[in-house]
Every structure is written in structure tokens, then in C-alpha cells.
Simulated scan of single mutants.
Amino acid sequence: MAAEFVPGNRLTLLNSGEDYFPALLAAIDAAEVEIYLESYIFADDVIGHQVANALCRAAERGVQVNVTVDGFGARNFKFDFFSRLTVAGVRAMFYRPEIGRFHFKRHRLRRLHRKLVVIDARVAFVGGINVIDDNNAPFDMRPHYDYAVRVEGPVLRQVHHAVRRMWETVSWVNFKRRFRLAPVADPCCAAAGDQNAAFLIRDNIRHRNDILHAYLDAIDNAKHDILIANAYFLPGLRFGRALYAAAQRGVRITVLLQGKSDHQLFRYATQTLYATALAAGIRIFEYEKSFMHAKVAVIDGEWATVGSSNIDPFSLLLAKEANLVVRDAGFAGELEASLRSAMAIGARELLAEELSRQPIHSRFLRWLAYGLVRAMVGIAGYSQRHWQSEETKPEER
């Protein structure tokens, strides 16, 4: 399904938790009718408790507060927050809760990876930032580097519909019928600004490829510059071909990736792609200042996206994801300036001669990591053939 851009929005770019959490907490404290919050991680740290306290205060003053967390990413939530929140009147549920331990389950790869908050159907937050303190990381990886967007305007109708539908679906699956009887705030569709935006999700039915196709359309139409910053970058066949074609027609392509990773297997697998990308003229930078968790892109200074979707098979084919796509030179320019500044301060460019000096065993380990990741996709129910062909079905384009 193509992105449905709507005009009249006001979008505020938020850089990491330093910008995001003060804005989020202020909005929660101002809530009057309802709050929907979705997060993959809800950490037992300073930020987690600040957000939990704000949600409790809102519920205690009569706001209907609905919290959905992932059963694997936020598996601590049951012990750290659930009782306190429910006593205060917060309605909380798990998406695919973990049952049992110490054995592999295929469904662990099918996660609720969205980071969304909608308050009174009048303001929303969309991005890649979990409920976790920026400094909740090993010392040399602090602080987290990520983005979110504060959203006001007509595109809220799309965001509100998505969180409402997720809540109803999880309620039904968990037999929480009393949670399904919820009053609905009417989305505020009045113009709040002059920016064009579309809200995209990834699920397993109607919207399986929406985020992927938005990227591909933007790359296919790029004329000058493509700047992608993505924490976990392992594109499929169609995505890689689109980037290569753009490079061949003279588009300047820059990819910013993690230099410090919490998933070394993914990092090693991604590094198998470096030689081909550099040979095509694509510049690759690794962010080494701290832990980069961003999932953003800017194309031709006009098109931008901020969201939760990594460019890898797990995000693009398996997980529940959400991205905001923007057509606005002002917003795109602000995001690009922020990325360029971060790269100048904390990133290092990878050069072809570095790769040529890698020992044979190092190259072998990286290809082994790549093979393991592909095998994991197959175990989850997506074979290598499906991974490649899923992106090219014309009837779903």
C-alpha cells in the first residue's frame, strides 16, 4: 500500500532521550482523556520509573491509560512495573509474552518493535526510542543516539488508528474483553502546521511491505543524495539493487552504521556487504562515539523518514514496525544537519584498503555470521527464496 501523505502537520524532531523524554513526560502530564503507549523495551531505570510514575498519575486522575509492551524485549516489565501500574488503574498487556526459558522459540523473532505514544488523539510520538535511559548501556557505549518525532495535525488519524487497532488485537488474543470496551478520543484532524507526512506500519497482512516500498520508491526517484543512518543494516536483494542503481546513475550515497553494537553477529554479517558497497561508490561510516540506535534517512533534502524499522529481514519481514515519512525540505534539512554533525563528531569512514588488509579468518567469520543470520530468517518461517521474492511481488507493490 502506497504512503498516504496528508498536509497540515507540525513535526518536531527530537534527538535522543535528552529531547524525547521531557517532551513525552510533559505530554503525559497534560493528558485528559486517553493514552496509548507501545514500546519494545520498558527498562527498570530512572527513565522507566519516571514514565511509569507519569502514567500512574494520569490514570489516577481519570485518564484511560493503555500500555502494550513486547513480551520478549520488555520481559522484565511484569516484575518491575506491572503491579504498580495496574493498582493505579493503568491497563497493561504483553504482545507475545514469553512462556518458559532456555530454549529457542520461532516466535521470538516476531516482535512488537514499534515505539509509539498517542495522547488524547491530539499529539503523538513516533520513532526508535524505547522507554530506557540514554545512559543505560556499558560505559563506552553511552549515551544512546536515536531520534523520534513529536506529531500534531491530520496525520494523527493514521497513528491513532494504528495504536487503537493494536490494542484491540492484543486484547482479543489475551482474552481481555474488559480492556476492549474503551472510549475513543476523536482524532484532531485540524491543520497544525504546513508539513506533509504519512504514517506507515509493517504487519503480516495488508501492510507487510509498506515501509520497504516507501524506501524503494524514494531511492528509485533519488536524484542527488541519499543519507541513511540505520542501526541494523542487512538489506535484501531488491533494496541492495535499488541502492546500486542509484549509485550507478550518479547519486551520492552515504550510509551511517553502528561502530559499537549490542549484537555483534549482526555487525559482522553487515560487514560482508562493505566491499561491494564501496566498489559501487557508496560511502560507509561507522558511528563510534556511542551506541547508535537510529533508523532514519534523508533523500534529496526533501524526503525523510524516522521510525523503528531497521533495514534488515527481521524488521522488514517479521517485526511490527512504525515509521513516519515526511516530504518537507525544512524537516529533512534539520534531520540531515543533525546526522552530518553527529558524523563529523563521532563517526569514522571505512575505506576499501582497510577491507583488503583483513586476514582470511576474519573474512570467513563475517561470512559465517551472514550465513547464520540468513538461517535464523529461515527458522522464523522465511526461507532465503522468500526473503528475496517477498520484496518483488507485483501484486503487493
Rank of each mutant, 00 (worst) to 15 (best):
101 R>G: 00
371 G>H: 04
228 I>Q: 02
252 R>V: 14
334 E>R: 10
321 E>W: 01
230 N>A: 14
330 G>W: 01
356 S>H: 02
269 A>P: 13
331 F>H: 07
270 T>H: 03
112 L>S: 11
93 M>G: 04
381 G>Q: 01
364 F>Q: 09
312 D>W: 05
280 A>T: 07
164 R>Y: 13
142 R>T: 07
179 F>W: 09
65 V>A: 09
290 S>I: 15
219 I>N: 00
368 L>C: 05
52 A>L: 07
47 I>H: 04
53 N>W: 00
127 G>I: 12
82 F>Y: 06
69 V>T: 10
240 G>A: 11
347 A>E: 05
270 T>Y: 03
138 P>H: 05
250 G>T: 05
235 P>C: 04
243 L>K: 06
12 T>I: 10
243 L>V: 10
183 P>S: 07
272 T>P: 05
156 L>R: 12
308 S>M: 11
246 A>D: 02
382 Y>N: 01
90 V>S: 10
365 L>R: 14
303 W>N: 00
313 P>F: 01
143 P>H: 05
54 A>I: 00
61 R>G: 06
188 C>E: 13
51 V>T: 14
271 Q>T: 00
67 V>F: 10
390 E>W: 03
285 F>E: 11
365 L>F: 09
91 R>H: 13
384 Q>H: 14
134 D>Q: 04
210 D>K: 02
260 K>N: 06
351 L>T: 14
234 L>A: 08
138 P>L: 09
103 H>K: 13
156 L>C: 10
47 I>Y: 04
268 Y>R: 12
87 V>N: 13
19 D>W: 11
374 R>D: 12
190 A>G: 13
290 S>L: 13
350 L>E: 00
309 S>C: 15
342 A>I: 06
377 V>C: 15
338 S>H: 12
321 E>T: 05
250 G>L: 01
329 A>Y: 04
117 V>F: 12
275 A>H: 09
248 Q>A: 13
293 H>I: 10
349 E>N: 06
2 A>S: 03
159 V>K: 04
4 E>M: 09
84 R>W: 03
96 R>N: 15
325 V>Y: 07
164 R>M: 06
357 R>N: 12
181 L>I: 02
259 G>L: 02
